[in-house]
Amino acid sequence: MMRARGADSHPESWLRATDGGLYCVPGDFHVDPHRPAERAVITHGHADHARARNGKVLATPGTLAIMRARYGAEAWRESQALDHGETVRIGDVTVSLAPAGHVLGSAQAVLEYKGARVVISGDYKRRRDPTCPPFEPVACDVFVTEATFGLPVFRHPPDGEEVAKLLRSLETFPERTHLLGAYALGKAQRLIRLLREGGYDRPIHLHGAMGALCDLYEAQGVPLGPLRAVGDRDKKELAGEIVLCPPSALSDRWSRGFPDPLTVMASGWMRVRQRARQRNVELPLILSDHADWDELTRTLEDVGAPTVWVTHGREYALVHHARGRGFDAKALSLVGREEEDET
């Protein structure tokens, strides 16, 4: 693997955290800019990473499809698709996109310049996700990692156990609508796939905000089984069914009229009881598209980069841990990142 030699080629000198996000000087582009940039590399389609109205956008075909579905003509002026395994040159910088295992289309941005390599992992997880290819560790000089769940209390349990809790609840309360709050992009489709794998083959009912992205996943080759829009159907008919909605809809006026609704929320934050209780959640499912503490710390070892920059989340704890393990680690404060499901 390559190592940075001269001081001028160390990423410290050519990759900067600016007000607009991470900026690559020799390529003159931003990675996941949080306000419109002339040229942007986008790691994945979540709104705090992929914003509308950038000039030229480079991303995977999956991410571009998501941005187009969300923003329509506002998405960009010009786009370029880059599959995993392909490379492209922007200015003096070679760019490729490695799988991140976060959501459909998600990627790590791999930047090479003057023999030094930086991997900006975006958001990622290490466990299996039936809707996207798994995270690939890429050897590098500087690894930029998120730290959403950067405390050792965040240990996500096996997905199958969490889905089994939901199936069990449907057995115990067959007369109640199970209102399942989950991110409309990624979490919702992964949950549907996990439910199907758990043997649930009844139709799953969707809040209006879910339909388009589910269609997109199916078009991208992720089969989701029978889905129905709640629309303006009589909600009384949905006793004992699963209704999938964005987390904000759980407390919204929309949730009225379902028979004795049982609120379910799928999020990594549900690991901490107080967080679940604050949300009035009756059945918390600990399910996240972000790496938990064990995955974060294991990834640092797998990637093996001598230098680690930690972005959004609980940076302090992860930096402390990484230093203890001999990494040259620091927190990189990036503005504009939102916590998962904090709507």
């Binding site: 050792p152 209390v153 609980r314 704890a317 402390h320």
Partner: peptide, 13 residues
């Protein structure tokens, strides 16, 4: 456990 990580975790939870 690392005492710093324990303290941060206990404060959070």
């Amino acid at each position: 456990a690392d005492p710093v990580l324990f303290r941060l975790s206990h404060d959070y939870v």
